[in-house]
Amino acid sequence: MSVTESLHIVRRLPEPRALLTLIKPITWFPPIWAYLCGVISSGVSPLNNWGLVILGMVLAGPVVCGMSQAANDWCDRHVDAINEPHRPIPSGRVPGRWGLWVALAMSALALGMGAFLGPWGFGATVFGVVAAWAYSAEPVRLKRSGIWGPGLVGLCYEGLPWFTGAAVLAAGAPSGPVIVIAALYAIGAHGIMTLNDFKALEGDRQTGVNSLPVTLGPERAARVACIVMALPQLAVIGLLLAWGRPWHAAAIAVLLLGQFWAMRILLSDPKGRAPWYNGTGVMAYVTGMMIAAFALRMIGGAP
């Protein structure tokens, strides 16, 4: 009998603090921020729709993102036993099938809340819930791919919440420029997710998860991640210039220059510097997202 199995037998109920750790509050910020970017870019006053704004923030962050984290931890419990044995499930602090029950209950809660956001908001919620399980669960488990896995997470962390916020406020499909900018930032987020895979490098190797750090090695994977993050932002800058928003484009360009500086430091020690970059370069990235949202608002986000 393993230590983990014995812990599961001893503890029948999960620790409350471990349940909070399971849904990882630190991960809620990106989708909430992206949802707010969508709200701003819609061109509709959030003050007159504050209920939808708050509901969407709670849905995007604590509920859908929290659910995705619980589902991922449950499906990754064997990998986490190698990479992070202190995590709630492998440590036994969330015993038995509690991780699965939490993920399923939060999936149902997400769908119920999404129904109050209208057809576009509900459709986006359904997509987000299905994507969370497709990323983590067998037999699909898109996490095994270093291309599709980070791409799906980037889409659900940045693009989908942005689209949802704009659609909910506009009560319809967002405008073409909003969709394009949201898609570009979602593509760039693929690089951010690739850097996030560095922390699970050893466990991924042992369990057959073909992340880019595993298949390309840390150095090449970091270079690919930097290129993937930078090119969409260059496209955003070009589009904002074409749409007559030079000051917004210039502000994003300055933030991108700061990211280039941070990328040089990252590339000097990709595995060691990846967590540092996630706290510096990524902040500049998401700041640019909000600047782009205000630019879209001035252009006219609603169709």
Rank of each mutant, 00 (worst) to 15 (best):
L13A: 08
E15I: 10
E15P: 04
P16M: 04
R17T: 13
R17A: 10
R17V: 13
R17P: 08
R17M: 14
A18K: 10
L19W: 07
L20W: 05
T21F: 05
T21C: 03
T21M: 11
K24T: 11
K24F: 12
K24G: 06
P25I: 13
T27D: 15
T27E: 14
T27Y: 12
W28F: 14
W28C: 10
F29H: 14
F29C: 11
F29Y: 15
P31M: 07
P31T: 10
I32T: 05
W33E: 07
W33R: 02
W33P: 05
W33S: 06
A34V: 13
Y35M: 07
Y35G: 00
Y35W: 02
L36Y: 04
C37T: 15
C37R: 11
G38S: 08
I40D: 00
I40C: 05
I40M: 08
S41T: 10
V44A: 14
V44I: 12
L47S: 03
N48S: 15
N48K: 05
N48M: 09
N48I: 08
N49G: 06
N49H: 15
N49I: 11
N49T: 14
N49K: 12
W50G: 05
L52T: 02
L52G: 09
L52N: 15
I54F: 09
L55Q: 04
G56Q: 00
G56A: 03
M57Q: 10
M57G: 15
M57K: 02
M57W: 03
M57F: 09
M57R: 03
V58E: 05
V58T: 09
V58W: 08
L59R: 04
L59I: 14
L59D: 03
A60T: 08
A60P: 11
G61V: 11
G61P: 11
G61K: 03
P62Q: 05
P62S: 05
V63N: 07
V63C: 11
V63E: 06
V63P: 00
V63L: 12
G66M: 06
G66Y: 01
G66Q: 10
S68C: 10
S68M: 13
Q69F: 13
